[in-house]
Design a protein around this nucleic acid. Structure first.
Lengths: 233, 233
DNA sequence: TCAAAAGTGTTCGATATACACCCATGC
DNA sequence: GCATGGGTGTATATCGAACACTTTTGA
């Protein structure tokens, strides 16, 4: 059997109190706005899946060192059943692909980090996860599963939250990020207390400017203090 | 490239206050005790990985309905690099397998449930996870990762703990199970309180007999009460 | 002076931890 | 009667949840 293995990467960013996913437009004989999908690639002969996912994202973003998480494999024989998708596979890989399983990866990054200017894709864009288009294969399902996985991941490694926020952020930025990830709201006062217990979040003197309300204090994430914290076990 | 995809199943049981893994002996031209490995199989053409894992375990145990968890994919190009392993693959599948990636599954079951009398394996045996032999491919690594995964799984679905215990069990059985899974010890009194808060654990009138110390009470797991419990969110 | 968001403390219940002694049984 | 493991309660610290008003700023 002619089985192929790919990686697909769900990249989340955070802006306007909302999570965004990074989508690319697949090249195709007749490109259309309906061709947005997750960035991905077949795995090369001598690389493992982690490396393939790194390669895909390095090409896209220029970033070399990044923390990725493999979170699920999608193996349904029907996932390439749609005629459009089968045709596109044949076009893109110039090969008859009977069966394609994919290993899904999760990556969190600042949304305004600049992306590589050249890439193999016609378009690269951030879309709010609440308004994703219908995507090829099972990519919509992959994003849903990623949204569940993100909670497991940040619970183990809260540093990841700060990959999503700008270097300087306010308490309400962080709170809204928690709210987006956990799909619930947090009481402002209780959230402040919770935040103050994370002593790797350092208040700055700097505050917002030109806002039409009381200016919020900025905070920064202190990696050194974070690494020194004793992980509760 | 000729990539093959398999599933490998880590089956844990619990006995003598210790976790055991179910290993099979691979058939080979010259069988030896060193051929113990995880039960597994290539994925068939029209099945997805979940189904393949079910198939492997049904053949082995006769069980039809079971809860499995896909937990990680192993894709290193070097995982089949050992000469022995490469030879065995060729022998077992009668085909040249250049590259083999495997999807690992986790399953928890009672250790004394009787297994299918016929299977494709010469030997099927439970081994304490603390004394596993060196296994082919990366199967030792897969078991280690499974031991981490088990905690994530039972935290979401504590019912799984009772898949590992006999129908009637004592408080200290359950405590030792927690200790084996979490690799720490629990204070006896505090553990009792914790256990009493799980109201789906029901005390029975029955007690141990013929033990040379005070007889322990038996408890049973009540599935109905378990399903009724409101999951804290 | 108004609108809009920032910032701040106390109380309560639930949960986890620490800790020591008597009980039942078989030998 | 003694060795072995079973069974039990209290006190303390920590954590999360509920809850309302004042402050700052630009428009």
């Amino acid at each position: 059997m002619n089985t192929h293995v790919s990686v697909d990467c769900v990249v989340f960013g955070f802006e306007n109190n909302e999570l965004y996913a990074l989508l690319v437009q697949r090249n195709s004989p007749k490109p259309s706005r309906n061709d947005l999908k997750l960035p991905g690639s077949l795995i090369y002969q001598n690389e493992d899946a982690d490396l393939a996912a790194h390669r895909v994202l390095s090409e896209l973003t220029g970033i070399r060192k990044m923390t990725l998480r493999q979170f699920k494999v999608f193996t349904s024989p029907l996932r390439t059943a749609s005629e459009d998708d089968a045709k596109w596979l044949e076009y893109a890989y110039n090969d008859k692909i009977e069966r394609l399983i994919t290993i899904a990866y999760l990556y969190l990054t600042k949304i305004n980090r600049k992306l590589n200017s050249v890439s193999k894709y016609a378009t690269v864009e951030w879309m709010p996860v609440s308004q994703l288009p219908k995507m090829p294969f099972d990519h919509n399902l992959i994003v849903s599963d990623a949204l569940e996985e993100i909670r497991n991941w940040v619970e183990k490694e809260p540093v990841l939250l700060f990959e999503l926020l700008p270097t300087k952020f306010t308490a309400s930025d962080l709170r809204h990020l928690y709210e987006a990830i956990y799909g619930r709201s947090y009481d402002v006062r209780n959230f402040h207390k919770k935040m103050m217990k994370m002593d790797y979040i350092c208040p700055l003197e700097e505050k917002q400017e030109h806002v039409s309300h009381r200016a919020a204090r900025f905070y920064k994430f202190d990696k050194v203090k974070y690494n020194k914290r004793t992980v509760g076990l």
